[in-house]
Design a binder for these strands. Structure first.
Lengths: 217, 217
DNA sequence: CGGAATCCTCTTCGATACTG
DNA sequence: CAGTATCGAAGAGGATTCCG
């Protein structure tokens, strides 16, 4: 179908990379898959406006470029899933730098802008500060709207995963709006306490979390 | 003129970043400007296929997004130049990660692919290995085709700049083809000596350079 | 139901020609 | 040299239909 995929035709690593991931939607698809395999429908839901034909075409391109493999979920839910290959996962750092750069462009959420809690998870993860994590060994779980994810900090390293933690030290439950207010506002603890968001653990843990994953202004 | 620049409409740092730099050509323009201010003509020459209208539109967009400022060269060459702002330069890391990721896609130069020596300079710079640079304090100048650039290694840090060095320890003169052969081949010194490429300095310096800027793979 | 193919309209791209 | 104007070609986006 792609007789000639459009190319910059330059012997340059940047141009080659952009030949593959520079098209519209591609890196957003990678963003979604970075937090685990997804079904077609999941991707479509997270990418409003993409249209099934275009998503289908992109996934095919990405498969032919070995960024993605098509798998099958084990029965009974035997539906197709898309998963990043090693090469695809290698884009994590690229996405991370773009997120850092784009952070200051976020501004105030506008009404027409959609939001998925897991995007915040990924953004927080790139703001991880190993220095601040020294000596901390804790797990923080967040339940935002109907998404659950958690961060594990241990041994100067951090990990962020979708789904609940097995035995979290802190659990925070909030709506998207509350969560964003918390993230961008001052006096996080005051707000969290007033709203009763901390369902397990102490405000000190939230403070610590805020120091370890300090969003860049 | 831009009634509504197309946007992903997501409250996500990645999507915001891609709203601005995700369009075709934009990051390649950034790549060019990362090595210093350029005139319209220079950019057009380095981006074959862009078309003057599109380059013009992109520069306007980038100016309105504060990635670029339009300056004037001092007389007598009073022509307009484009220069990255601080925000624009912040994309250096993004470009760096894309270059690292794209490196393995380079393959063999194909006849239709164009090449500019300065792209190699930027690619080499991202492969800098601080460990290997410990205790080295040298300047390496390269004259490839009709472009000249140099690397300064000092104090565990490296810098790459267009133009000649003031007092280089090593000077290597080569064609693009020779340079690429050197970069991707085995036995660099053998090749360099056989072709007489090292015009100043010793083969040991070239070996050291290859260890400090070791291209990935 | 998940996902791919088909249409149709609109925007963007790319190449060339043209102007200050 | 630095752009603007123009126009055919390609790609995006939405709706709908088809297929397992």
């Amino acid at each position: 179908m792609n007789k000639t995929t459009r190319s910059y035709n330059q012997f340059c690593a940047l141009a080659k990379a952009l030949d593959i991931v520079g098209e519209r939607w591609t890196l957003l698809i990678v963003r979604e898959l970075l937090s685990g395999p997804k079904r077609f429908k999941d991707l479509q839901g997270a990418l409003p406006g993409i249209g099934s034909n275009l998503l289908s075409a992109r996934l095919k391109d990405m498969e032919s470029q070995a960024l993605v493999v098509r798998g099958k979920l084990p029965p009974p839910a035997a539906s197709a899933i898309y998963e990043l290959t090693e090469r695809g996962s290698g884009l994590g750092k690229v996405v991370g730098e773009l997120v850092k750069w784009g952070f200051s462009l976020l501004g105030i959420p506008k009404p027409e802008e959609c939001f998925q809690p897991r995007w915040a998870m990924q953004a927080l993860l790139v703001t991880f500060d190993p220095e601040a994590a020294q000596g901390v060994s804790e797990t923080y779980e967040f339940r935002i709207d109907d998404e659950i994810f958690h961060f594990t900090v241990h041994d100067g390293k951090a990990e962020g995963l979708l789904g609940p933690a097995s035995d979290p030290d802190m659990v925070l439950v909030a709506t998207s709006l509350e969560f964003l207010t918390l993230g961008f506002g001052e006096n996080q603890n005051g707000y969290a306490i007033k709203k009763g968001l901390i369902k397990r653990g102490t405000p000190e843990m939230l403070t610590r979390f805020g120091r370890i994953f300090r969003h860049l202004r």
